[in-house]
């Protein structure tokens, strides 16, 4: 299952960059959001760490939606959904592959969001870069696990897939709160041990939705 998932992730990443487009839409939207939010402070005024982190995660949350709608659009455009379903791969490996590809694309987007937050929001990265990377990874996994499951529902829905966002955003709230709180803690110099509760919550989110997705994905992604 792992190797077939990796194959699907590789295929999707190649497709994402083949058109020269990649996650450009998600990156641009995120940068735009950071810039627009920077207007909400008077010139020279700094954003608090909490405001900056909240904006960073908002951009990531929007990015996830765009990324997964892109990833599932591939199967629609190329009409490969049926082929994938007929192949001997377990259906779940399709979900895992999409989730991995989405994770890569999201991390790539955040490579742009983070410096943008430094520049426009005056974000102070603190002195624990390893902790920050760990936190971003843990939260991203949760966002992508959920994104891969819900994104599959948008498959074959035409314009209706945009409606799914009204349920995705509220579902993401616990992990976004975790991302914001851990980020603020790390920037203010709290040691990782002091944030164990929040890390536990984020991991619980990752595990719970990964489990749910493994069970439920086969019901969502079926040929007509």
């Amino acid at each position: 299952m792992i190797s077939s998932s990796l194959a699907i992730a590789r295929k999707d990443l190649r497709l994402a960059f083949a058109g020269g487009q990649g996650p450009v839409q998600a990156v641009l939207l995120g940068l735009l959001l950071v810039f627009i939010f920077s207007l909400s402070a008077a010139p020279g005024e700094r954003f608090s760490a909490q405001q900056a982190m909240a904006i960073f995660w908002l951009c990531s949350s929007f990015g996830v939606v765009l990324i997964f709608s892109l990833l599932f659009r591939f199967e629609e455009e190329n009409d490969t959904a049926t082929a994938l379903l007929l192949s001997p791969l377990p259906v779940q490996s399709l979900w895992l592959g999409k989730t991995l590809a989405g994770l890569m694309l999201l991390l790539l987007c955040q490579v742009f969001f983070f410096p943008a937050a430094l520049v426009f929001l005056g974000l102070d990265p603190g002195s624990n870069p390893a902790g920050l990377v760990l936190m971003v990874l843990a939260v991203d996994v949760g966002l992508c696990v959920l994104g891969g499951l819900i994104g599959a529902m948008g498959h074959g829905q035409g314009a209706k897939d945009a409606l799914l966002t009204i349920i995705v955003f509220p579902l993401q709230i616990p992990i976004l709160l975790g991302g914001i709180r851990i980020g603020v803690g790390l920037m203010q110099g709290t040691p990782l041990g002091g944030l164990a509760d929040w890390f536990g919550l984020v991991m619980a989110f990752d595990a719970v939705f990964a489990g749910a997705a493994l069970f439920l994905f086969p019901h969502v992604f079926r040929g007509e």
Partner: peptide, 22 residues
């Protein structure tokens, strides 16, 4: 699909509560 959403929504409840309490 509606069934999957109904299950996923409820699975979220304890996580929302824990995060809100923290």
């Amino acid at each position: 699909m509606r069934a999957v959403l109904g299950i996923v929504a409820f699975v979220d409840v304890p996580l929302v509560f824990l995060s809100a309490r923290l």
